[in-house]
């Protein structure tokens, strides 16, 4: 076990939680959540207003997954508050960079967080990190808001009587997502700016195709494996 794991209570907690969950049988959606009263270590640095003394979150550990599972499975408002405090300003910033004024962006950010609460049961940690899932909700809201377009979503994958997904699968996707955050943060400024432009809607298709070198190889293959397992489990 590396030293950063020893010094990060969140990681230790997540590991324990995952081990706990892997010893249980449950329905398809994995439940890594544990009741709030059973997690003094996590509840520690947070008060009810959701202010959190944030540790440096730039390492590659899975982020926010525990809060999200607590919202999903336990309807935990304190966990929601923590997610809101971190993500709402980021959603607002994203929408403003995409051309929304501050008031609209603020309202939409609140909407997106409300959607997170209402649709929490659709969060699947074998396919996306919390940040990724929130991004997709915010993006769809943005399309709605700026373009009034309908956005077609791919067909749901067959949702069969699959045994509980392996915890390693959850960890892989979560860790790959965290690694991606780090990799993108460490790209040279010019390249990161280009990617931002592509995502904030200031770039044409032709310009996008000039973009190369996104560090996506590993996460793509992990997600492919996860989908593959899902398809095979439901055949």
């Amino acid at each position: 076990m590396s030293s950063n794991i020893l010094f990060d209570p969140r990681t230790a907690l997540l590991r324990n939680t995952l081990m706990l969950a892997s010893s249980q049988t449950s329905s398809r959606k994995m439940s890594v959540g544990i009741p709030p009263q059973a997690q003094p270590a996590l509840a520690g640095p947070m008060n009810y207003s959701g202010r959190r003394r944030v540790n440096d979150r730039t390492d590659t550990q899975p982020l926010w997954i525990d809060e999200m599972i607590r919202v999903r499975d336990g309807r935990d408002r304190e966990a929601f508050a923590a997610l809101f405090t971190h993500f709402a300003p980021r959603i607002k910033g994203y929408l403003m960079k995409s051309g929304a004024d501050a008031t609209t962006a603020e309202e939409c950010a609140q909407d997106v967080m409300t959607t997170l609460w209402r649709k929490a049961d659709q969060f699947d940690p074998t396919r996306a990190s919390v940040g990724t899932w929130i991004f997709t909700i915010a993006r769809n809201r943005r399309i709605d808001m700026l373009r009034k377009d309908r956005r077609a979503e791919p067909e749901d994958l067959p949702w069969g009587p699959e045994p509980e997904p392996e915890q390693s699968q959850v960890m892989e996707i979560q860790q790959e997502s965290a690694r991606l955050v780090k990799a993108i943060a460490s790209l040279p400024d010019t390249q990161r700016k280009l990617i931002e432009q592509a995502y904030f809607g200031e770039m044409t298709q032709a310009e996008i195709s000039e973009l190369t070198g996104l560090p996506l190889g590993t996460i793509k293959s992990r997600i492919r494996l996860a989908l593959d397992r899902l398809r095979h489990a439901t055949k």
Binding site: R90, A128, G131, T132, I184, L216
Partner: peptide
Amino acid sequence: ADAHAYDAVGGALLEDTPSDM
């Protein structure tokens, strides 16, 4: 799967853009 990976890039960029609520 590739589309999910590009979603993940969006998730990563989201970390970068806070604006006070």
